[in-house]
Simulated scan of single mutants.
Amino acid sequence: MRTPNASATLRSRIEWIDTDAAGIYHNSTVTRLVESAEASLARERSLDGYFPVAPRVRFEADFEAPLFFGQEVITTVTVTELGRSSMVFAFEVWGEEFDGAPRVRAAKGRYVTVHLDRSGPGRPQSAPWPSDWVDRLTAS
């Protein structure tokens, strides 16, 4: 299998809906930020129809620092492994300088997606990634 060469970086902001009453982000916000960056990668690489056929089968995160309402955030996802029917992503979520505090990594982790064939009846089964997607994920 060819080496993946795909990543995306997304700039966003912690919104009120992402926080508790004290204005500190919920851990689940990391999943939303990471999935937004992953969606950006899918758009940039023209992986049309990616999300309905690529569920997450594993997700792990290390939460290292809080993020706050209004804080700017940089999220990066990188494809680190591209198998026959699975793909491994690494991610980092960084909180930019805020209220006098320096830039800090808020979370890091990895997750795995699996390509599903949903064309037949019954339960979807894992299937090889489409060759054009592999080409787009390994292109320079």
Rank of each mutant, 00 (worst) to 15 (best):
P4G: 10
T138G: 11
S46P: 00
R105S: 01
R45C: 01
V53I: 15
R136E: 05
L10D: 03
F59V: 13
V30C: 11
T113M: 14
D48C: 01
R103I: 03
S40G: 07
P102F: 01
T19V: 02
D99G: 15
S86L: 09
P52E: 05
W129C: 05
V114G: 05
P128G: 11
L33D: 06
E44K: 13
A42Q: 07
T19W: 05
W133P: 08
F91P: 07
T75A: 07
F91I: 06
R2S: 13
F51V: 11
F51T: 12
M1K: 08
E60T: 05
V114M: 10
Y25V: 13
Y25K: 00
T31P: 00
R56K: 06
R58F: 04
A139I: 03
K108F: 02
Y25Q: 07
E96F: 00
S46L: 12
K108R: 15
A61K: 05
V34C: 08
T113C: 14
A22I: 07
E35M: 03
N5F: 03
A127H: 15
V104G: 04
R110T: 14
E38M: 05
L10E: 09
V104L: 03
R2D: 10
D62T: 13
Q71F: 02
A8W: 05
F69Q: 12
Y111R: 06
V134M: 11
L82S: 08
D132N: 12
A61R: 02
G49I: 09
L10T: 01
A22F: 12
T9R: 06
V30Y: 04
R136N: 07
A37T: 04
P55E: 13
F89Q: 03
F69Y: 13
S86V: 11
F59I: 13
V77H: 02
A90K: 11
R58G: 14
R110M: 08
V53P: 01
E15M: 09
V104P: 01
L116E: 05
S7H: 10
S40T: 07
S12Q: 08
S46H: 13
R58L: 11
V34R: 04
R136S: 12
E81R: 15
A42C: 08
W133L: 07
G70Y: 01
G83D: 10
V93E: 06
S7I: 00
R118P: 00
S140Q: 11
G23D: 02
P4K: 12
R13K: 13
N27T: 04
G23N: 03
D18N: 10
W133N: 11
E92C: 03
L116S: 08
S12K: 01
A106K: 03
S131L: 12
Q71C: 06
A65S: 13
V34Y: 00
E96T: 14
G109Q: 09
A61P: 05
A21K: 01
S40I: 03
G95L: 06
